[in-house]
Amino acid sequence: MGTVIRHSFVDTNGIRMHVTDAGGGYPLVLLHGFPELWYSWRKQIYALADAGFRVVAPDLRGYGGTDAPEEASAYVMSELVEDLQGLFDALGFDTAGVVGHDWGGALAWQFALRHPERTARVASLGSPLMPPGPVPPTAMLRDHFGLTDATFYMRRFLDPGVAEAELSADVRATFQKMLRPARHAQDLWTFATVGGDGSSLLGKIGPGDSLLSKVDLETYVRIYKRTGFRGGLNWYRAVDVSWEQEREQPMPKLEMPAMLIVAEKDPILRPELGASMKTFVPELRVETLADCSHWMQQERPAEVNALLLDFFGDLRDPELE
């Protein structure tokens, strides 16, 4: 019998979280990004479970089948970390390997920093660990990319209702235009720069290949038509408050084995953003996927799976391999 993905709900940190769970053995917890779902890891779940891991991929706070509090203040990083801590408790995990992509990568780093005793190893796809800077992240990143408030997607996201309306107007087109391979990486930059002139997140993106099969696309569309995009957008709306909290604490060294996988053609989480990480993550391993864009676990699943198995492989119980 092949690997079966099990679905359940757990209560954690005051919310009800939808969780998928496959395989048996040492646990790996996979954390998705924006605008995604547990389903974003579908090409990893089977490979990792078949290799002898118990693979857990939740819908994070605000997404899919998990509760989505209305207020943006409910999405500060300290709350998201405690969601994950409660998930570990509910599933009986003393420790686990933690893997994240995009916002899930940021959460993976913060969980490892705040709960190192429960994090065996941590891997991030795209998102570097960056210490709190002198200005809020939505301003720092805008200035880093040389953009303005009007032409930087994170600043556009801050106005409640604005991005929700555009992304929800045609959910199918939203995912067709966003989740594209490296040859269409410029389309994601068009999104990130709000059309280049502040006019529209999606309006200037034309036809192009999608990373999603028909079944994949219908899965995203069905769920997002029900939930909308507000929950995921609230992660952005809380980021500057999270920064205020984080800068009150000194940046500790992350002493456990860690891996950052970057994509050569990711126009947003560019490889150079993690250039200084080894100063506070001494056991950092960095891997680069050539000719790959932002959605790397969906665009290059075989390479991602191989890297994860190489990095976490010796945590497996040999009797379950």
Rank of each mutant, 00 (worst) to 15 (best):
A238N: 04
A72S: 14
F9A: 04
S242G: 06
V239P: 02
L60I: 14
A68M: 06
L289Q: 06
A112F: 04
I223V: 15
I205K: 06
T95N: 07
P137F: 04
A72L: 05
D314C: 04
M130F: 06
I45D: 10
G33A: 01
G232I: 04
R183G: 06
M256V: 13
V281K: 13
L30V: 02
E283C: 03
V99R: 03
A238G: 09
A258E: 09
A123V: 08
F152I: 00
A275H: 03
L30S: 07
D216R: 11
P134W: 10
D67Y: 04
A192S: 14
F311P: 05
V10C: 01
W109H: 07
F9T: 10
A150K: 15
T279V: 09
Q176R: 14
M17D: 02
G161L: 03
H101D: 00
F191H: 12
D170P: 11
R300M: 12
R180P: 10
F152E: 02
H184C: 10
A57Q: 07
W103M: 11
E287D: 13
R121V: 13
M277S: 12
K225G: 10
M256Y: 02
G231C: 03
E164D: 15
T138C: 11
D266T: 08
L254N: 10
A120N: 04
L48T: 06
G208V: 06
T95K: 14
L37C: 01
A165F: 00
M1S: 10
G208F: 05
A238E: 08
T95G: 00
H32C: 05
E218Y: 02
R270L: 10
M256G: 07
D240R: 08
D59F: 05
D314Y: 02
A96V: 02
W235G: 08
P137R: 04
L84H: 09
H144C: 01
E36A: 03
Q44P: 09
Y75C: 05
Y26R: 13
A49K: 07
Y46W: 05
A22R: 03
W235N: 09
I5Q: 06
S200G: 08
R180Q: 12
V241R: 15
S124M: 02
T119R: 06
G228F: 05
Y75W: 08
D314V: 07
F145Y: 14
N234E: 07
R180G: 07
E255K: 13
E319T: 13
P160Y: 11
D102R: 06
